[in-house]
Design a protein around this nucleic acid. Sequence first.
RNA 1: GGGGGAUUAGCUCAGCUGGUAGAGCGCUUGCAUGGCAUGCAAGAGGUCAUCGGUUCGAAUCCGUUAUCCUCCA
Length: 898
Amino acid sequence: MAFNSCFLSTFAADFKRHTRMTSREIRRQFLDFFASKGHKIIPSAPMVAKGDPTLMFINSGMAPLKDFFLGNQTPPSKRVADTQKCLRVSGKHNDLEDVGMDGYHHTMFEMLGNWSFGDYFKKEALAWSWELLTEVYKIPKDRLYVSVFKGDEKENLPFDQDAHDIWKQFIAEDRILAFGKKENFWEMGEQGPCGPCSEIHVDLRSDAERARVDGKTLVNADDPNVIEVWNNVFMQFNRKADGSLEELPAKSVDTGMGFERLVRAVQQSDSNYDTDLWKPLFNFLEQFSQKSYQGTYPGVHENWNKTDVAMRVVADHLRAVSFAIADGEMPSNTGAGYVIRRILRRAVRYYFSVLDIKEPVLYRMTPILAEEFGDVFPELKAQIHFITEVILSEERAFLRTLESGLKRIEHLDIQNNTVDGEQAFELFDTFGFPFDLTQLIARERGWSVDEAGFQQALARQKDRSRKDAVRQVGDWMVLRDEADVAFVGYDQLELENAYVTKYRTVAAKGATQYQLVLNRTPFYPEGGGQVGDTGWMYFGNEPIRVLDTKKENTLVIHVVEKLPEAIDLDSVVCTVDASKRRLTESNHSATHLLHAALRQVLGAHVQQKGSYLDAQTLRFDFQHFQKMSEEELARVEQLVNEKIRQNVALEEARNIPLDAAKAAGATMLFGEKYGETVRMITFDPTYSIELCGGCHVPYTGKIGFFKITAETAVAAGVRRIEAVTGLGAEQYVSTLEREVGAIKNALKAKDPVKAVSDLQESNRKLAKEMEQLNLLMAAQIREGLRTQFQELNGVHFLATTVALSDANALKTLVTELEREKGNAVLVVGSVSGDKPSLTIKISDELVKAKGLNAGTMVRELAQEFLKGGGGGQPGFANAGGSDASGLPAALEAVKRYL
RNA sequence: GGGGGAUUAGCUCAGCUGGUAGAGCGCUUGCAUGGCAUGCAAGAGGUCAUCGGUUCGAAUCCGUUAUCCUCCA
């Protein structure tokens, strides 16, 4: 971090100014430019990765297009361009802790990209990128450098002469730099398509600084002002399992350009954050916090300002969180949702402690974002109320956590003015109180915090979790190299001549799982909320149980109990567990009817937020802001059952263009990635049209009967309905009936509700009377005892047994007698069942004056005479035992203490 | 998926190494003031989440289940 700062401030002044393009225009220009070169512009995929177990969030422009490169799917066009929402917070690209500290890290960012799938190659790609940067965006050519792959001897890969020669036509040869595998050779993973790449770097330093140090030496050298803007990857090889490379028959291009950086370069700004993308957010924060944004950075400016870091953190994280929620990822405590929660909380931490804002504020900023991105990413604007609501409730929850953490710090046991690591870790781990806040508060009070101890404890916890998550995924054993898997389960539940294309074993926590992929399968893989099918496969005479069916990208994976012996048989018979599937279908179709009914009864804001369907039950989560009333639930149930009785036929359109489905008015979901063609499920075109890949009943009558069993809240603005259908509903109702019948029977009442409340009432009365009687009895006993006191060594002494078994009554008895007499020692024995108890009361003044202790007395007596034990305070104690015959002796023995 | 923690009055929470349940707010009633803010007094309200164990005795110790919070993966 040794770069000098003073040049930053002068940079904008001496960069030759052009007309300033807004970020909106810059994005537009990119898409228009590639459209004019024959590219199909596709919408951004949701930021949350679905169906890809290796990836939580989309972290690059090409990630959602992986299947096109792998050949698993056909692209909609050979030339494609888009802007893709990306999130980098976990795994290899973990930028979270850097965000805010510098001018170029973001959690969520846009990546512009253009692709060729076996169409154009290096010549066009490089020429176009040069044209766009220099002619459309008018970035001065003398600020640009390009890099090419210099070759690698170990891999036997040559210098990328082609790229070098192409660049020579546009740029001086001394600005073409060569780098090795690390910078200029790109691979998707251990295996698969890969190839050399060529990057374009831009030098954004001031003229003075540029004159002083040659920009060429700063390329790929971590200078914050000499940065890569565009990477062109040329996929020309396939990396095989043994590590060797083979030339691909069809060569592809994959490019990626960070949008925020590009805007900075075009708008000639000091950093990504000093652009019109962020201004509105900073303006709001300045106004709200009454602090100003100066644009300083630690390590760059000597007097950098914490406020600046905080505002960048808040603005950046707000974007990430809002888009994630818009794409359907709710903050939660596991998985991807937890990542979102952590980002949001990091923002709260910063505004809470640095901007000194102690109330929710992120939720106030969502409309600014919605306005800014309304045209490119409509999902934000369309769900603005929902997103705002979710963020607000998260903020509130975390502020509450902070508050209770602050309280907890007050009760810390501080030794040597140090908060030990274990304490700090407990605050963090158990109570969610951030470590940096613990440090901050400690500093204010002149304590130090044992950071090493904290880190140790954290490392231990990570270790534990990781150990648990160890999974040994075996390589796919490929029997037949076929990419396509045909799912035939919509039409048939049995299949006779399938064969295994590949298989593998997965070991986790001692258990081994076997996974098979077939060329064709009737087994439905878990997806769209519907559980995976189970059933049997027969390899000749050998039956193999199918435990579950899952999906990984486009692969249908069958989880089986063991590997068959004749695994390469080509006449495998598949049989889906039909009764389970049929019940699941009923639940799935009922869910569609329910969805439509909810929209009719509650309004069009009802958006599906998730569902779960198996053979027993259905669960449907949806956007709605208040608890549903009894009447609303009844109407929804009624509507669904009406549709069932109408016995509506299923209309299934398997491969219709997305646009046609839209035109038909199909219900679409945000955060869902739709292909070019979709499957459309209709039950009455005026009632329910949904895009859906799941399995359905042919006629709604098959569902039989629909019954809602619960309506609850699952998150801010999200409600859940649980329901049963058909057989399940029948069982549910008959169970209820049996229960009510049993209650009626027991009460011998026609109206069990009234009978129960009467019963409760009379029970309360009886309890009251009982208490009164007990008191009365105690009063009488007290009366009798009053005269039995003895004088013993100057104290009022009473030792006796009474016929009270209630411990509470005994307590009041001795307390009141003591208060009347004063200067007294009372010992009362009683028997409850066959168990003795002993209660001792000693006046306070005697406790002090004579050092008497009821607790020790009672314990010793109980041990000696009652085969028991006891204890209490010096003035009042009681004991119990198991030998009632010792009671008189115990009472007699008390005297020895006086 | 793995760890840690919580669950006590309508609400927010105390409750020490086991000895039999408490505060503040709220609620009800009465009194004071012309009314309100308020003050005073009395009172109601608890299977200490659940089931089981240890113990003479469990809100307290141990285990089960449920729900919630939190950290890690």
